[in-house]
Nucleic acid binder design. Structure first.
Lengths: 261, 261
DNA sequence: CAGTGGTCTAGACCACTTC
DNA sequence: AAGTGGTCTAGACCACTGC
């Protein structure tokens, strides 16, 4: 019966999608079409993070396809970390609030290759214009206003990472220092929980640099200490960039860890 | 009829696997068991790189399962880049000789985020003992001998990467400077082609460092220029490490590019 | 045209979670 | 016990490749 409301909503999705047909959807495999429908529902925030979505059988009946076809669609979305399955209890909208995604966007490991919990301190949270490299990443202009956050991350109480985070103001209007300071958990968990913005993927450019003045001060290092510079653009659904982050890592006792597959 | 020899061979694989049963295979899903069998055949080099493997229907008949079950097993191996499918012509053993895998293990992009072809120069190829950090990565000892290669990579004829590569001697005995210099293609392509060793995955530790003397010389940089240091262990089938590589990247005009998913 | 991978179905049964 | 995801089948048909 809860599903009835789902159905009603999804019929709307079906119809609007039908209106938007540009011919490209026709001829696509069924499971791709269903993937798109589920994706649309997720992007529109119809199901909240952590919530169950209808069962495979219900979806199959609703879309008038077999369970196997729905399953294949969900398989892909699970592989993209947009959904997660729990055997026996259902399929859920993925969330950064889970333990397992704690290090999905933080590839910093210690000498033993293990990830450690960090102690975070918010140094700054203000509304301001951004440098060109930032606003261009959002396809915005020099007069657009952003939320600018500066955060210091420590491991074993030794400062290791200094981050400058930029968010477009319209989406994160009510974000402030108090909220950031009181939040226990990852920043993407906060974005999800308070701003209905789920990070789907990110693109990183990594270089070796000399530290800037602020980094020198907060990481308590000399100006000649090489630091790892990470420029990240993070995207939500539909490849929409919603965060730019420039981080400086002190890679003395820690390193950026990556798996190539 | 070619398949008859495959069958004969695979029966051997089945029987040896049956001997090796430790109970852990029993109870596993059918597609997992079939995955293991195909994996074993790949690891033993039964099918060469780039070769077709039997069709899904043939495999299904041979293993006495349905086509869908074989397909699911192959799906996973394709996702791991061990096999590739070509619609209409067959399923093939993946190879680093293909265009598409040229940048799979080289994440260096230019300012526009594009990958460029490199000009490579082999500076050294000798047999020698290795530092502790190297031989420990192979679980070998201080007296074991390795092939040691030093390679300079240039982009637009500007030197950018200096690599020290270590390979266990028994596997790469006949590798020499002449062969390396004459090879056109990626190094993993060479390993595959001449040493029947296919790289399956790699683990990287990335730090910012000051360059060592050799790097300073060959990258033509000052001793105070920060460089990106990448320590890589590359594995073949069965998680067996077969290459350790320590590379120094000049990240002035290029950067390490990574996607987080 | 024959053979290959790719899609889809309907139905069965299993394994797990929840109440 | 009921409902969920997970596995497996047999069979159909489609889309693509190469002879």
């Amino acid at each position: 019966m809860l599903f009835l409301t789902h159905c009603a909503y999804m019929i709307i999705i079906m119809e609007t999608e039908h209106d938007n047909l540009d011919g490209s959807e026709i001829g696509l495999p069924l499971y791709e079409q269903i993937k798109q429908r589920i994706l649309t529902a997720l992007a529109q925030g119809y199901w909240r993070s952590g919530e169950v979505i209808p069962s495979e059988n219900d979806l199959a009946e609703f879309y008038q396809v077999s369970q196997g076809t729905v399953r294949k669609a969900i398989d892909d979305l699970v592989a993209q970390h947009l959904l997660i399955r729990r055997h026996g209890s259902g399929t859920f909208v993925a969330t950064h609030l889970e333990e397992q995604s704690k290090y999905r966007f933080l590839h910093l490991a210690n000498a033993q290759g293990k990830f450690e919990d960090s102690q975070n301190r918010i140094l700054l949270c203000s509304h301001q214009k951004a440098p060109a490299i930032i606003y261009q990443s959002f396809d915005l202009g020099p007069n657009d206003i952003f939320v600018h956050i500066r955060r210091l991350m420590s491991f074993k109480n030794r400062p290791v990472v200094l981050e400058e985070i930029w968010l477009p103001l319209p989406l994160f209007d009510s974000l402030n220092l108090e909220l950031l300071a009181s939040w226990k958990g990852t920043m993407y968990g906060l974005f999800e929980n308070h701003f209905a913005t789920h990070m789907v993927r990110a693109h990183e450019k990594i270089t070796a640099e000399l530290p800037n003045e602020i980094t020198i001060e907060y990481l308590e290092i000399s100006p000649s200490t090489p630091i790892l510079n990470i420029f990240r653009i993070a995207y939500t659904y539909n490849n929409r960039p919603v965060e730019v982050r420039q981080a400086q890592y002190l890679t003395m006792d820690y390193h950026y860890q990556n798996e190539l597959n």
